[in-house]
Write a protein that binds this DNA or RNA. Structure first.
Lengths: 335, 335
DNA sequence: AAAATGTGTGTTATCGATAACTCAAAATTA
DNA sequence: TAATTTTGAGTTATCGATAACACACATTTT
């Protein structure tokens, strides 16, 4: 491996001079600068960022932790975060927790041992608190994305889960649906709780009763699990519409419905939170509350970098991004 | 920050002894091992992986470079790669080149300076050769995914682009289509060339002539670009079917068709390479040649780790994974 | 009992880069 | 011309960890 010492020797200068050329610091005569640069190119020198980070105590690497890399919401978010990070001169390291606390913890350990400069953190749920405290204890700045964590002070970028849910359910109610099921994520996750609150509010505002046997909890990424749907179908008084708390749960529900010979929307209407990124264009079919995923990433990254570089005000900021109701063909008026 | 020296001092031993406890090397009496471990826990010690990598000359970090993080083919591939890497005790750092040579080069520089132990490399195209040579020059092992690069010897994991394309086009021909357009990726990419070859072969074997004005090239990820479709629609003798060389191009084509009031499959049949990951389940609509994306990642990672750990035979291996023709509702017999 | 081994631990040098300090020669000022 | 300042370097210590060697003491072998 080529080091600054190799360059120094060949250029007839000290290692420090080479370092100065690389970083454009200190005083260097134009002649030696040129000479050193020439040697660096000849030997294809690449600085060892670990040696550098060791002495500088910073890595210029940020980390983005998402809970499901196969969910288009998060990949679009990742693009936003990446673009913002690169623009600010940072590299971005992606990590994928799979909605799994243990994996999340593993990645947090990795971030600590890699000494990343900051973390954009989409938590798996309330229990992520410990992992966040771990980052806090080691003075690694972070911004929490998408899900609020009780018990921690941090910059936050959230969607308007309650409002979005209310709009979706109100849309169903306007179409005449009175028995609306909800397939929700784990109650350990703030968005699941808030979306339930929105669902509830829509009912109350319309004078409808909430029937808790129509509300079912599943893991946000288990779109293969058909048991939720079976429970609803075999309900003694089955629903005429389903509100899925995110896109993956909707995929699971629709897939399961189809297997059982039920059509959307003629047999049941379906709505959900989040769109499907680029593949949405393929078949704009589901009525959704679409969140600005790219902005989640871009804005979160901006907050993070501001905090790292000390431009942040002391108090923590909480940004709430609006969602947009997109009415498409997965909903229809009740016959 | 807590270092081994802090631990050493508090435990009343030398730093070396702490290092031995951490790595389970050398001889340590049970008593001091326990004492050191206790202190490490008390102080919440986390090893500094940069200092360690600096002396060990290895990082236990691998990198996966993909060309489009919003493409479900690559995110599913990423899952396969990640699982295999974690199983083998490596961490995986994701990078996203966006089908952009300059971004790709930026990430390669980052990998070199981070001194990753190896790279799973899905190249943007033939010109990626330079970036691969760069890795080679610095002795970083890599495995090339999905796209073959003329001029380099490397382990390869590929799909059967030619066969898959032939099967798709033959399916269209069997349905009575004789004027089949192809929306292809850049000719700089091996899969684009091979899929064209398969398209051509299917025509020749059926005694049909290939009409080059029906073959159009676009960037594999520019699904927003509708100009390809316009060229086909306004053709003096328009096609009755379209073969899109990947999923994103198909999305673009179908979206554009829909905007122009044309229905799939009643007005035109559409087929493409690659499925849509989990969202495929939402609406199994497109007839596709589906590639085993997860296996691409898992197998590629396995080859990479074997090569890094020296278990690899000297000669390079080339794995070709079959694709599966899934006939769905985006194709129908010509009236 | 002397010699040879084994056990547990410490010392020193090193990985590649940079900060802080030093210093000779050149340029400027008085 | 002597004193001062500026310029363009070099030296040394350091970041946090580990390899290689050294070494005292305990244990086993002859």
């Amino acid at each position: 491996m080529i080091t600054i010492y190799d360059i120094a020797e060949k250029a007839g200068v000290s290692a420090m001079t080479v370092s100065r050329v690389i970083n454009n610091t200190g005083r260097i005569s134009e002649a030696t600068r040129k000479r050193v640069k020439k040697v660096m190119e000849e030997l294809h020198y690449i600085p060892n960022s670990m040696a550098r980070s060791l002495v500088l105590q910073k890595t210029k690497i940020l980390s983005l932790l998402i809970t499901d890399i196969t969910n288009p919401f998060y990949t679009t978010l990742a693009r936003g975060a990446e673009d913002a990070a690169l623009r600010a001169g940072y590299r971005l390291l992606f990590a994928n927790s799979d909605e799994d606390y243990a994996k999340e913890k593993g990645y947090v350990d990795m971030m600590l041992s890699t000494r990343v400069d900051g973390v954009l953190f989409a938590p798996t749920g309330d229990h992520s608190l410990e992992n966040l405290l771990q980052l806090q204890k080691h003075n690694i700045p972070f911004v929490v994305l998408d899900r609020e964590i009780p018990g921690i002070e941090a910059d936050l970028v959230l969607g308007d889960s309650k409002e979005g849910a209310r709009k979706l359910v109100e849309h169903l109610i306007e179409l005449g649906h009175h028995r609306i099921a909800m397939i929700n994520g784990s109650p350990d996750v703030s968005t699941a709780r808030l979306r339930y609150t929105g669902y509830r509010e829509a009912h109350l505002l319309s004078g409808l009763a909430v029937e808790d046997s129509l509300v079912i909890h599943r893991n946000f990424r288990d779109f293969q699990d058909e048991s939720a749907l079976d429970a609803l179908i075999h309900h003694e008084n089955p629903p005429t519409a389903i509100f899925a708390a995110n896109n993956m749960l909707a995929i699971g529900a629709i897939q399961a419905l189809r297997k059982r010979g039920l059509q959307v929307p003629s047999d049941l209407s379906v709505v959900c939170f989040d769109g499907f990124g680029p593949t949405d264009a393929l078949n704009p079919f589901l009525t959704v509350a679409s969140q600005p995923a790219y902005q989640f990433g871009a804005l979160g990254m901006q907050l993070l970098i501001e905090r790292i570089e000390g431009e942040a005000t002391l108090e923590h900021r909480k940004m709430i991004l609006p969602s947009e109701l997109l009415i498409r063909s997965s909903t229809q008026a009740l016959a």
